[in-house]
C-alpha cells in the first residue's frame, strides 16, 4: 500500500478488521494439522535410500520352484559335511573346516539366454556368507551354464558356524546384471529350525565327495 502523493494517509484502517469466525479458524487449524500428519504418514511408504537399489527378490521354501524374470531355481537338497573332497584329474583336494560345510543342491533353468548363477547364504540375523573358497568353484553350479529349456542341478558349498544355520536362506542371483537396477534374485529357505539344524549337523558326514 502506497500513500497517495497528496502526503496525507488514506482514511484510518478500521480498528478491528473483519475476521473469520472462531469455528472456521479452528477448522483451518485442524485441516492444516491433518495435512501435516498425512504427509508425515505418507513417508512411511518411502523406501530408505539404502534400500532403493535393493534387488528384486522372489522367496520360497525348499523344493519349491521359484520363478524370476530371467531364471527359475529350486533348492533340491541340503546336506552338511565336516570335510569335502574334490576329485580332480590328477588328485584329490581335501577341504576341512572348524565350522561346518553346508552343501546346497540347487536346480535352475534360464528363461532366455545361458546364465552362470552366483549364490550366497543369508542367515537369520542378516549375515551374508559367500560360497567358501576351500572348495574349488569348478565343482559348483557357479561355474556351470544354466540354459533355457531344461533344468540342471549343481552344488554350492558354504562354510558357516553351526549356530547360524537355523533360519538361513540360500540366495541365487544373476551376477551379469550387477550394474543394472533391480538385480533379480531367488531366496530359498532351508526350512530348518534350531532342532532340525542341530539334528542334521550332528549327522554331518566326513569326506563328502564331489568331482571338480
Amino acid at each position: 500500500m502506497i500513500d497517495p502523493p497528496s502526503g496525507r494517509p488514506a482514511a484510518p484502517a478500521p480498528v478491528s478488521p473483519r475476521r473469520a469466525p472462531a469455528w472456521r479458524r479452528l477448522l483451518h487449524v485442524a485441516v492444516g494439522l491433518a495435512l501435516i500428519g498425512g504427509a508425515g504418514y505418507a513417508h512411511e511408504f518411502v523406501l530408505p535410500p539404502d534400500r532403493l537399489d535393493d534387488p528384486l527378490t522372489a522367496t520360497g521354501g525348499p523344493r519349491e520352484e521359484i520363478r524370476m524374470d530371467t531364471f527359475s531355481a529350486r533348492l533340491e537338497e541340503v546336506r552338511f559335511a565336516r570335510s569335502v573332497r574334490v576329485k580332480k584329474e590328477f588328485g584329490t583336494d581335501e577341504a576341512t573346516t572348524r565350522q561346518i560345510f553346508l552343501v546346497a543342491k540347487v536346480g535352475a533353468t534360464s528363461v532366455r539366454k545361458p546364465l552362470k548363477l552366483s549364490a550366497f547364504l543369508l542367515t537369520a540375523d542378516g549375515l551374508r556368507f559367500d560360497p567358501t573358497d576351500r572348495v574349488d568353484a569348478g565343482a559348483t553350479l557357479a561355474e556351470k551354464w544354466v540354459q533355457p529349456g531344461w533344468w540342471r542341478s549343481g552344488l554350492y558349498f558354504f562354510e558357516v558356524p553351526p549356530d547360524k544355520v537355523a533360519g538361513a536362506r540360500v540366495v541365487v542371483t544373476d551376477p551379469q546384471v550387477l550394474f543394472e537396477d533391480w538385480v533379480p534374485e531367488v531366496a530359498m529357505d532351508l526350512g530348518l529350525d534350531e532342532a532340525g539344524a542341530r539334528r542334521m549337523i550332528s549327522e554331518a558326514e566326513d569326506g563328502y565327495e564331489v568331482t571338480g
Binding site: A95, T96, D130, D133, V160, K164
Partner: peptide, 15 residues
C-alpha cells in the same frame, strides 16, 4: 591359515 597347511582368502562374518 586356520588348519596350518592350506592357505585360503576369506574372512567370514563373526568367525
Amino acid at each position: 591359515l586356520d588348519d596350518g597347511t592350506h592357505p585360503y582368502g576369506q574372512l567370514h562374518p563373526g568367525v
